[in-house]
Nucleic acid binder design. Structure first.
Length: 813
RNA sequence: GCGGAUGUGGUGAAAUUGGUAUACACGCCAGACUUAGGAUCUGGUGCUUCACGGCGUGGAGGUUCGAGUCCUCUCAUCCGCACCA
């Protein structure tokens, strides 16, 4: 019978499901492996990126399961989010109905791939039971002061009609729709991720060598720690009066305290309170006020494009060391959100300050030796024009100046972070409601835990205009959990990244307990951290930073025990490309997994994805290479006719002929390689290649025992990659015995009677010789010399190097 | 600008970690079987040369008996951040 993937795959998928073959065991004394591929958004159909992601994860899960590890390999659905609402707007379908229908369809697609997911642990993050526990966490974080509500400037996407977190703004545009992000002042809920900035940075060290350097540096840059001096600029008496005594001065932060004597002006962000006060009290020219307001309304991208723009604010501050009066400017390049929105400007040693100063003709004062007149010098050097600091190397002066400021109580050494707090409010319907209530008397009040979940209303109109929960006639009406008077329910919902920040703990929690708790500590203690996490680099900052933070926050509010990091090892898979570009619907260069499986079967789809490139690299799609993968499986399946015994034969290696010996060696080469591949390098392509080589070598000989042993081992090795055909072959040929436990490498097969050695002269390969395995060094050298005689004429051999089992190198003059 | 990575045949990629560069696969060429082949099988295939040979891992140096692998410099491509004071 020829290979028919449909039949075989159906048979085994049914069997596995009936046997509940992929459920983790309840026994916590067993050694565990938690293998997790990032869960999908139920967009409607699987794409090749999913196939790749899950093929990699499944290979690992099956490998460890076969070695008798207790394996947790779950799947679920990251089910809240904008696309569900867009579908509602476009096709008039309710987001909930759309989402669950998609899940049902995609679950079937996953099933046809034969992935070894646990079926009992599946959930969708939009399940009310999931929302319930998430809301409890949120309330607890509020009580523990990790969550707060405030009104501030936020990133607003008019297209998506919602606020975005900093991490969701890419080059000034919305990460989802690419619309330019506006700045807007409005209230929202924030998680205090800054409180964990240092821990998040420090613990990256625990992940070194386990996460890719790329992701680690991206996270570290995003957190953006820098150390420097923070101090107060006092307003001059006249300026203080001008501002009606409202301000004493303002704080600045600098990483260059060494340049303190070079300060010739200061600059404030357009949003700075002092600037606002000047505007409010009309202390600036009307034209200038207009311009400043203009800047404040610009997006960050627009500001960057506009070049450097600023205005003299007509007030001055006192230099803390020299007592000089220094002008205060407002400048469009000063960020409101960092370092207090104010900077000390040292045009001689900072490019930006220099550009600004040149443009507005502000004074320059060089304080570090080494630069040229007429440009900013940012290198190292000795201090000049710096009073008591003259002659000190600037690198050393940083600490000196901080010390000086601290002694005089003028300022202090500080650490600053680029990381901003995580804004989690979204003005959207399809998300988890933020479980708070606004009461006129009590203010912001969390919902009572026994009232959770606060569920979404089913009857809702989704038009794309405004916030559907806000527009709902009755939903937000409620009573205050504290005083019982009439109150208004919060209509913002949680960022969907909140759901994906703790799903790894939900999977680990035994489903029997899902009604009783959100996360079971004991279960989490057993299963976490995730031994292998697999997903795309696009989450290098967003999801992975949030999930790391949430882990630490959940620990501190008491929902999990001491756990530093959720994901011990991270494999970032490359994209799937077609003609050099990322597969996408809009480009029309997609390959439909369903059609692929229909035509060739799941095993071919899986084999190709793992064979065409190592998982970390981009995968270029190639139809004829898919054919090649299919051909290999057919060939493997066809060779079952070579085997008649059902046992792993015991072979007398010495009685074999040369081809038989080579075949065995190739088979065991593959077996040896497999441990490294499955446990360390994940370069499945090389293991598959080794199996192909082994099969090619087996084809060159006729020994039935060697064939039996070969297929016994090859199907064992490939089962995690092409499980259906291997299960089928294994059942037919070996009563499935080779799919349990470990196989041992027999070193004897690597012992060869004779070896082929390369012969090189001065490192240049000239010939090869065949030598007896037991030949002495002298004999080998002699043979080598004889084989390259023509190159040795008129030369003297000055050195002979024998690399055992590899080559001979003769150094001649 | 800063940071991270990657450069090997016509293509996807290997190389036991300093030891015969290009395994495996795709493609291509030739042959076999075929009415036919976009099926299957067999053989060949880095470049150059009639050949002996020469040249070959982005480029230039260096260390070494020996370098794709280590060191220095350099070029190109991809990704991330981007006025963070």
């Amino acid at each position: 019978m020829s290979y028919s993937p449909g039949e075989i795959e159906n048979k085994w998928q049914t069997k596995w499901s009936e046997q509940e073959a992929f459920e983790p065991k309840d026994d916590k004394t067993l050694e565990k492996k938690y293998i997790l591929s990032m869960f999908p958004f139920p967009s409607g159909r699987l794409h090749m990126g999913h196939v790749r992601n899950y093929s990699i994860g499944d290979a690992m899960a099956r490998y460890y399961r076969k070695q008798d590890y207790n394996v947790l390999h779950p799947i679920g659905w990251d089910a809240f989010g904008m696309p569900a609402e867009n579908a509602a707007i476009k096709h008039g379908r309710h987001p909930k109905e759309w989402t669950y229908a998609n899940i049902d369809y995609m679950r079937k697609e996953l099933a046809t791939l034969g992935l070894s997911f646990s079926e009992t642990r599946e959930f969708a993050t939009c399940d009310e039971l999931y929302t319930k526990w998430e809301q409890e966490f949120i309330i607890k974080m509020f009580e523990e002061k990790l969550l707060y509500r405030e009104s501030t400037t936020v990133n607003w996407c008019e297209d998506c009609h919602t606020v975005l977190a900093n991490e969701q703004v890419e080059e000034g545009c919305c990460w989802r729709c690419d619309n330019e992000v506006e700045l807007k002042e409005m209230p929202g809920y924030y998680l205090d991720i800054r409180k964990y900035a240092d821990e998040l940075l420090e613990d990256l060290k625990l992940l070194e060598g386990k996460w890719s350097p790329q992701v680690l540096t991206m996270q570290s840059n995003w957190i953006g720690k820098s150390q420097g001096l923070e101090f107060d600029f006092k307003l001059s008496t006249a300026s203080k009066e001008k501002l009606k005594g409202e301000f004493e001065g303002f704080d600045v932060f600098t990483t260059r305290p060494d340049t303190i004597y070079g300060v010739t002006y200061t600059a404030l962000a357009p949003e700075h309170p002092i600037v606002k006060a000047l505007i409010k009290n009309a202390l600036l020219e009307a034209k200038v006020i207009e311009e400043i307001k203009n800047i404040a309304n610009m997006t960050e991208v627009e500001r960057a494009k506009a070049g450097k723009v600023g205005f003299d604010l007509g007030i001055t501050v006192i230099h803390p060391l020299t007592g000089e009066e220094i002008p205060v400017w407002v400048a469009n390049f000063v960020l409101a959100s960092y370092g207090g929105g104010a900077v000390m400007s040292v045009p001689t040693h900072d490019e930006r300050d220099f550009e600004f100063a040149t443009q507005y003709d502000l004074p320059l004062k060089y304080v570090i030796e080494g630069g040229k007149e007429g440009e900013a010098y940012t290198g190292e050097g000795v201090l000049i024009n710096s009073e008591e600091l003259n002659g000190i190397k600037n690198t050393k002066a940083k600490a000196e100046v901080i010390k000086l400021f601290e002694e005089k109580a003028l300022g202090k050494g500080t650490t600053n972070y680029k990381l901003r707090n995580w804004g989690i409010s979204r003005q959207r319907y399809w998300g988890a409601p933020i479980p708070f209530v606004h009461c006129e008397a009590c203010g912001l009040v969390p919902e009572k835990v026994e009232n959770l979940p606060i569920a979404l209303p089913e009857d809702v109109e989704i038009t794309g205009e405004g916030n559907p929960l806000e527009n709902h006639p009755t939903w937000s009406k409620c009573t205050c959990p504290k005083c019982g008077s009439e109150a208004k329910r919060e209509t913002d919902t949680l960022d969907t990244f909140v759901q994906s920040s703790w799903y790894q703990f939900r999977y680990a929690t035994d489903p029997k307990k899902w009604n009783a708790c959100g996360i079971d500590k004991e279960d989490v203690n057993y299963w976490l951290g995730v031994d292998q996490y697999i997903g795309g680099v696009e989450h290098a900052i967003l999801h992975l930073l949030y999930a790391r933070f949430f882990t630490k926050a959940l620990r501190d509010v008491g929902f999990i025990d001491d756990l530093k990091e959720p994901f011990n090892n991270l494999l970032t898979q490359g994209m799937v490309l077609m003609d050099g570009a990322k597969m996408s619907k809009s480009k029309g260069n997609t390959v439909d997994p369903d059609a692929l499986v229909e035509k060739y079967g799941a095993d071919t789809a899986r084999l190709f994805t793992l064979f065409a490139a190592p998982p970390q690299k981009e995968l270029e799609w190639n139809d004829s290479a898919v054919e090649g993968a299919f051909r290999f499986i057919k060939k493997l399946y066809d060779r079952r006719s070579k085997v008649s015994s059902k046992e792993l034969p015991i072979i007398d290696h010495s009685s074999l002929n040369k081809e038989e010996k080579i075949a065995r060696a190739k088979v065991y080469d593959a077996l040896k390689k497999s441990i490294d591949v499955y446990e360390k390098t994940f370069t499945f392509n090389t293991l598959i290649a080794a199996c192909m080589e082994a099969l090619n070598a087996l084809d060159k000989q006729e020994n039935e025992q060697v064939w039996a042993e070969g297929l016994y081992i090859i199907t064992h090795l490939l089962e995690p990659i092409i499980p259906h055909v291997c299960a089928e072959l294994s059942e037919e040929l070996f009563d499935s015995k080779n799919l349990q436990g470990k196989l041992e490498v027999l070193e004897e097969v690597f012992v060869q009677d004779s070896l082929t050695l390369g012969v090189a002269i001065n490192g240049k390969r000239r010939n090869e010789i065949e030598v007896d395995a037991g030949a002495s060094k002298e004999d080998i050298i002699a043979m080598a010399k004889a084989s390259v005689e023509k190159w040795l004429e008129d030369k003297t051999v000055v050195k002979e190097i024998l690399v055992p089992k590899k080559m001979v190198n003769l150094v001649v003059k």
